[in-house]
């Protein structure tokens, strides 16, 4: 699994880097986005989906320790992302995004609720992405995209819970409205950027580097 996703990531990065060897003008798309319900590694650690797989009862010690504390709501910050994309073909963009997603929870001491500790997770993802624009007009574009990259999750409570792994974002339907300054939204999505994302961006053209013959 590790070798495979490293290979896919390498292919992605090489494709992105190959843009710099070509001449002419290229459209560059820079965007800031916000996603709701991003998939992060802590979702599978018993907070959301994990509990259903654990069919054993707690041991006496686990039950005792659980009774000494109780938790507040776990809140997700959503996913803040910054992305940069280069138009390679009229219908294809290459690029990558850097994103942050956090989940936060306060744990209270049962005997003295004024004593608290934090159980926060901070996730950072780097996701190279290929975007396929299947509807291309001057002011409206519709697209789908596939992203695959790397991520890391840091725990505020226990360094043993830190994790690294893949970052995946699949978007079924995305739409951007605007010529240079535009707003966008993506739905039918699943991945580390969120189930639904929205944001704004700016497009501009850059002259690309070319070798003198």
């Amino acid at each position: 699994m590790n070798r495979r996703f490293l290979l896919i990531l390498a292919v992605n990065l090489l494709s992105v880097l190959s843009l710099f060897g070509q001449s002419g003008k290229r459209e560059v798309d820079t965007r800031f986005g916000y996603g709701i319900y991003p998939l992060t590694y802590d979702l599978f650690d018993g907070h959301f989906l994990g509990c259903g797989w654990d069919i054993d009862f707690l041991s006496v010690k686990e039950g005792y320790h659980n009774a000494l504390e109780f938790s507040g709501d776990r809140v997700s910050s959503g996913c803040f992302s910054f992305g940069r994309y280069y138009k390679v073909l009229r219908w294809m963009d290459f690029g990558a995004s850097i994103s942050y997603a956090g989940t936060y929870q306060t744990i209270y001491n049962t005997v003295n609720p004024r004593i608290t500790r934090r159980d926060d997770y901070h996730s950072l993802f780097f996701t190279p992405t290929i975007r396929f624009a299947w509807f291309n007009r001057e002011y409206v574009r519709m697209y789908s995209s596939v992203g695959f990259g790397l991520g890391v999750m840091l725990s505020s409570d226990d360094a043993g819970k830190n994790e690294a792994g893949p970052s995946i974002q699949l978007t079924g339907f995305g739409i951007s409205v605007g010529k240079r300054l535009y707003g966008f939204s993506e739905v039918q999505s699943v991945g580390t950027l969120g189930l639904i994302t929205f944001g704004f961006g700016y497009r501009f053209n850059v002259a690309t580097y070319s070798k003198k013959q």
Binding site: L43, H47, A67, F70, S71, D73, R74, V75, S77, G78
Partner: peptide, 14 residues
């Protein structure tokens, strides 16, 4: 737009 993804425990007896 922070979203509650998991409700916390009810307050436990001391």
């Amino acid at each position: 737009s922070c979203v509650i993804i998991d409700e916390g425990d009810s307050v436990k007896r001391k």
